[in-house]
Design a binder for these strands. Structure first.
Length: 519
RNA sequence: GCGCUGAUAGUCUAGUCUGGUAGGACUCCAGCCUUCCAAGCUGGCUACCCGGGUUCAAAUCCCGGUCGGCGCACCA
């Protein structure tokens, strides 16, 4: 059976599937749900934790140049003042109640139509002007409604007294915790430039319109790091060789604005660098490294990934150049990961606002050198988006014996269970033997599920659906010869091996999963 | 946030127009049977998104809200 993943309904199918299998549910479901917020169920939390662990292992534990950090969710308000988030995100808006229903910046309307400065007016002041001066919608001449203040940040108060001094914000990104904690990290550890500081944590954004299941949400876990270099050596990337051969799909500004080519171009990282498509070598390195991590460790189809450069008009206030790695969802090519070159902007801002020196000192042959480090790359990826991508990419429907088989073909290292153990029959000796193997595998560090419910076929299907890569079945023969059957999720092939080789075999199968798939 | 549209068990759905005992399939649970790919039989659990209104009577009609989808807008 061919499953058309481009269909508009595909994501709804994934949502129903995730709900049914215990991956994700609407939060407060019994009360009707809350838009933009999701709970993760028993299966979802396992997959999620494995993705997170894979990220941390790859980019923190297994690297000499990146250290970890974990900042507070409710953040010192000055942090957002310094970063520019506070001033950039309190736009007063007003809606047209006439024909066009469009939204307008109220401060701009007041300035344009009345030619007065709006800077010192609050929302109420501007509202009075609208009524007094009879301002109308500049689009269609319709009546204007009640104005609102739009801020992307969730606000809260700290302590029992509610006044302006008690206002604090839930962080909309982890990055500012890293920047505001930068001084402490360089003072308390022996990091050497170039290096990165990584953080995985929950962030909050009061999105106007949450959409597409786990894709656009108001609370999510962001895994990101800031990679700092000497501002004079932003292109000194000694590990660039590791990625030069990597083949990626490039969708640069040129492809997006040229009428002639409005499609991405496949090429190697080396060629992209030679053709000056990237402005910074480290940024190219990190994008390529993540591309490989998505395909090799997350098992995501590389043909559905592309590198899209932000247009000038899209760039954030702090960014010199930003590239997204996009995935081709059924609802279009959308950002899976962003990687901005944030320059020295943030550290310099915090240096000014905090009156604390945020420079790095190092000694070389020419003497002592001091500088504010330069963030060449900030690879930033939402955990929920990876989970969604893995579900969308791995969900398959096949026809087996005229019946539908739903199988989640996710990388074995991300599956909620490493292996399931079944007794072929509920006979006491077989049950006991299966229990022994179950306990043995668990003691060996595998995440194991024991299932003796219903028929053997039903158990295989149940585990196909949640992505369990291997099932081990104990039968009468096992009692005689100590052999069991390993059944492979994707191919449904069965192999009979001795119990003593089981652990080794499971590890081999898991480690060679992608290579075996290629053949 | 605006416009259009929808919401019935864990899942898929019938019933809504035309108000009158909410039905089926799959899943799940128990039992029997069977024993390497969702087999069969019997039994069981579980639902009209929420709040008002109209009515003798509302899943059904009306109003408001919530949540989803699509489009627009938004996405530093």
């Amino acid at each position: 059976m061919e499953l058309d993943k481009d269909l508009k309904q595909f994501l709804e199918k994934i949502m129903a599937f995730a709900n049914k299998t215990g991956i994700a549910y609407r939060t407060g479901d019994i009360y009707g749900g809350l838009a933009g917020f999701w709970d993760f169920g028993p299966i979802g939390v396992e997959i999620k934790n494995r993705i997170k662990d894979a990220w941390w292992t790859e980019f923190v534990r297994n690297r000499d140049d990146i250290v970890g950090y974990e900042g507070a969710i409710i953040t010192h308000p000055k942090v957002w003042e310094a970063s520019g988030h506070l001033s950039s995100f309190t736009d007063p808006l007003i809606f047209c109640e006439g024909k066009c229903k469009k939204k307008h910046r109220l401060d701009h309307l007041v300035e344009d139509q009345l030619h007065i400065q709006s800077e010192h007016l609050d929302l109420e002041g501007m509202r009075e002007l609208v009524l007094k001066e009879g301002l109308i919608c500049p689009e269609c001449g319709g009546k204007l409604g009640k104005p609102i203040t739009f801020n992307l940040m969730f606000k809260t108060q700290v302590g029992p007294i509610q006044d302006s001094a008690s206002i604090a914000y839930l962080r909309p990104e982890n990055a500012q915790l890293i920047f505001s904690g930068f001084r402490n990290v360089i003072d308390s550890t022996r990091v050497k430039i170039p290096f990165g500081i990584a953080q995985s944590g929950i962030v909050f954004r009061n999105e106007i319109s949450p959409r597409n299941f786990l894709f656009r949400v108001r609370e999510y876990e962001l895994m990101e790091f800031e990679y700092f270099t000497d501002p004079q050596k932003t292109n000194d990337c000694p590990v660039f060789e590791d990625v030069t051969e990597t083949q990626v799909n490039i969708y640069s500004r040129k492809e997006q604005t040229d009428k002639i080519s409005d499609d991405f171009v496949p090429m190697s990282i080396q060629k992209a660098w030679d053709d000056q498509i990237f402005k910074n070598k480290w940024q190219a390195y990190w994008l390529a490294t993540f591309n490989n991590w998505f395909t090799d460790k997350m098992g995501i189809n590389g043909n559905k990934l592309r590198f899209r450069q932000h247009l000038e008009s899209e760039l954030s206030h702090y960014a010199l150049d930003t590239w997204d790695i996009e995935y081709q969802y059924n609802f279009g090519w959308k950002e899976l990961m962003g990687c901005a070159n944030r320059t020295q902007y943030d550290l310099e801002q915090h240096q000014i606002h905090s009156k604390t020196k945020l420079h790095f000192s190092e000694t070389d042959e020419t003497g002592v050198k001091r500088y504010v480090p330069y963030v060449v790359a900030e690879p930033s990826v939402g955990l929920g988006r990876i989970l969604l991508t893995i579900l969308a990419d791995g969900y398959q429907e096949e026809t087996v014996n005229d019946r539908k088989r739903v199988v989640l073909k996710i990388h074995p290292s991300l599956a909620p269970y490493d292996v399931a153990v079944f007794p072929l029959q509920k006979k006491p000796q077989i049950l006991a033997k299966a229990q022994d193997i179950f306990k043995f595998l668990r003691a060996q560090g595998f995440t194991v599920n024991f299932d003796d419910g219903g028929s053997i076929g039903k158990r295989y299907r149940r585990h196909d659906e949640i992505g369990t890569p291997f099932c081990v079945t104990v039968d009468f023969g096992t009692l005689e010869d100590e052999n069991i059957t390993i059944r492979d999720r994707d191919s449904m092939q069965q192999t009979r091996i001795p119990i003593e080789k089981l652990v080794e075999e499971l590890k081999n199968l898991r480690n060679n999963y992608l290579a075996a798939k290629m053949i």
